[in-house]
Nucleic acid binder design. Structure first.
Length: 92
DNA sequence: CAAACTATTCAGC
DNA sequence: GCTGAATAGTTTG
């Protein structure tokens, strides 16, 4: 794992629950606004897909980007998180 | 070290 | 909405 990947994972972990951020956002967060592609690379090569909310990282506009397990899984996770967030905020 | 690859992004039509 | 071009870092040879 390189410093770049590390930063990417840290930024991904900073993403709030039930929300999504763009690759560009992460790239700027880590100090490489023009490395949005490398960000995706690091995420797809992420060593710990379970502790890294890579599914919260999408393309610009909030559209679904890619995912190691397929876009469908990503969509499912995002939907699930949205639902859980709603439950928590509504205390239901 | 260089070339290829990549879960992208922006501009133009 | 799709196509083409640009860009940065990792990985492989």
């Amino acid at each position: 794992m390189n410093a770049f990947s590390k930063k990417v994972y840290s930024a991904a972990l900073k993403i709030p629950f039930g929300e999504v951020r763009s690759y560009k956002w992460v790239a700027e967060k880590i100090g490489r606004p023009k490395a949005f592609r490398a960000v995706g690379q690091a995420l797809k090569n992420n060593p710990y897909p379970l502790i890294i909310p890579c599914h919260r990282v999408v393309n610009s506009g909030g559209s679904l980007g890619g995912y190691s397990r397929g876009k469908k899984t990503k969509k499912m996770l995002l939907d699930l998180e949205r639902y859980l967030k709603q439950c928590i905020e509504n205390k239901k």
